[in-house]
Simulated scan of single mutants.
Amino acid sequence: MLQPVIEKPKLAVSACLMGIEVRFNGGHKQSDLCTQSLDTYFDFIPTCPEVAIGMGIPREPIRLVGDVDHPRAVGTVRPDLDVTQALADYGEHMAGALGGISGYIFMQKSPSCGLERVKVYRDNGVPFESGGRGIYAQAFCARHPDLPVEEDGRLNDPVLRENFITRVYAYAAWQRLLKTGITRRALTEFHSRYKYQVMASDVVQYHALGKLLGSMGRDDPNEVAPVYFSQLMQALKKCATRRGHTNVLHHLSGYLKQTLSSDDKQELQALITQYRNGIVPLVVPLTLLKHHFRHHPDPYVALQVYMQPHPEPLSLRNAI
């Protein structure tokens, strides 16, 4: 039987990270992660707000000045060059134009695209201790609070990278659900698939989401759905700890308690303990679990996103 073809999730990305020469000096900041690892699994949509608003290449660099929470983007040579409103307006525009994306990778430290810790300067030219957010990124993200977003530099951290890609695939799965239509059954089944993934990240929210859907009753599922999904994405945004993963691994191993031999159980529990203690990466006990479930299939476990939340060749769990 032919499997349905699932489109690759779309990711918006700062154009300079794709090797496109759009920076103020005519250069780029090519990301090997984007161009050599992720490009097989995602359709990238490059964007550069500074070029889009007509600043040209090369151009005068800009920086953030004034209030950290509400900075202005001005020229570093000509302070009267103020592109704050133009960048904010373009962020609003692209928030609507890029409605089909499942995530966004921004250029770090950029006064237009940086997500956090972007330098904001006082009137005397000294930067504040705390940073701000790029003007374009602020406007865009305000319109898409649940969208997975991350900076390129932070994606060098294997835990943050795995968390981001997991959220992107969850967002893409939700987009597919919205296209087929929200029903009580569809919403319940979607949550059922994500139970253990949520448990690994936030056990409190795991119970809260179950309670939310359990009390749905005769409520319109189309009204419950956005509340549910927003809470789901907030839960998944929390990076799962070794303790969280260990909790899920123990729960999953419970489905094998009637089928495994005593020696197999001991081996599995030993590997879970080694993972918990930081001796082996997550992929080690998880691979053994998958091996046992291939020989002793469980229909509920087979549906769990946690078992493979992203393409296996990405090897995202090899270093966490």
Rank of each mutant, 00 (worst) to 15 (best):
V248L: 07
T246I: 10
N277K: 12
D202L: 05
P221W: 03
N277A: 03
L268W: 10
L213K: 10
A225H: 01
L252M: 14
P226R: 00
V224W: 02
D263E: 13
T273L: 15
Q266P: 03
G244S: 07
A270E: 15
L282S: 08
G214L: 04
A186P: 08
L232D: 01
T246W: 02
Y206Q: 11
A208I: 13
L213V: 04
S262M: 07
A225I: 01
V203N: 02
H191D: 03
R276Q: 07
W174H: 02
R243G: 07
Q234S: 07
V283I: 09
E223D: 09
D264E: 15
Q197T: 12
L260F: 06
K237G: 12
T273G: 12
H245Y: 15
K237N: 13
D263A: 11
E267S: 13
G278Y: 08
I182N: 00
T180N: 09
L252P: 06
Y196F: 12
R185L: 11
A200K: 10
L178S: 01
L212C: 05
A240G: 07
L213C: 05
R243W: 03
R185A: 13
L236W: 02
N222Q: 11
Y196G: 00
D263T: 09
F190N: 09
R184Q: 09
K265N: 08
G244F: 14
V284D: 06
A235Y: 01
Q231C: 07
